[in-house]
Design a protein around this nucleic acid. Sequence first.
DNA 1: TATTGTTATACTCTATAACTATA
DNA 2: TATAGTTATAGAGTATAACAATA
Lengths: 142, 142
Amino acid sequence: MVLVDDRQLTEELHDYLFALRTQVHAELKDLAREAGLTDTQTDALWRLSRGREMTAGRLAELLQCDASTATSMIDRLEKRGLVRRVPHPVDRRAKVIQLTPEGCALRDRVIEHTTEHSPFARLDHESRLRLRTLLREAMDRS
Amino acid sequence: MVLVDDRQLTEELHDYLFALRTQVHAELKDLAREAGLTDTQTDALWRLSRGREMTAGRLAELLQCDASTATSMIDRLEKRGLVRRVPHPVDRRAKVIQLTPEGCALRDRVIEHTTEHSPFARLDHESRLRLRTLLREAMDRS
DNA sequence: TATTGTTATACTCTATAACTATA
DNA sequence: TATAGTTATAGAGTATAACAATA
């Protein structure tokens, strides 16, 4: 039983797509400001934190940006002493990006702050489970 | 009955928060490339399209950016002939931002393309309804 | 030859501060 | 005085193309 027009619903979800971008931007910006970072840098820090260490190429892949963009981002993070480039153990072309102790400390603060001021705190447990399921489904591009 | 650790679930949702940013960025970038725009410009066009016309200040508010940022964005869109600044009917300080016919045409193409290649197309109707409800709840900052 | 990463370049996005015109 | 918008400035994010070193 379809009570809502399908095309209208899809269009409405696209409103959310755009709003989501703005909202997520804003949430990350708040997080970032707290830590003295930009939202993109916070994103990068989070990735490095979750996956521990990785090559520059892998980071670019996760952030879905060009390799050259990753290079300049890493440059800025390195200049701030948050990450460091170390040689790859077997591939001498590649470089492994690591969080420094300062980077780890900042990451910890970001995680703590995120957990405290979560935009998902409004939802109850069941809702969060459902949201996870739906997001997984919608975001899966494969 | 809680089968999943709550803290872990919240952390996982934050992974999605970051991933979502990247994903939504990417979706908008694809959309934009199609139309020869940046993702932010696509966003602006969409807002102008949905709300018809509005002041520069209102646009900045919707995009959650500074007024000066909106100014330069409008500059670029105007230079491309997609929007135009017209005097506000009663407040002579304010300017109303309008889509030009070219802007409208581009907006139509973007909407059509979005509907066709929707990231939400993967979800069935019921799932989309549930997603809408959850997003509304989670995104409501008031 | 193909891949990893960097550099040079050019644009867009972004906020802050100082400003103009109007309310 | 306060508000709407602009300008000047500076830094960050972004991709393209050309390049070096290595696989």
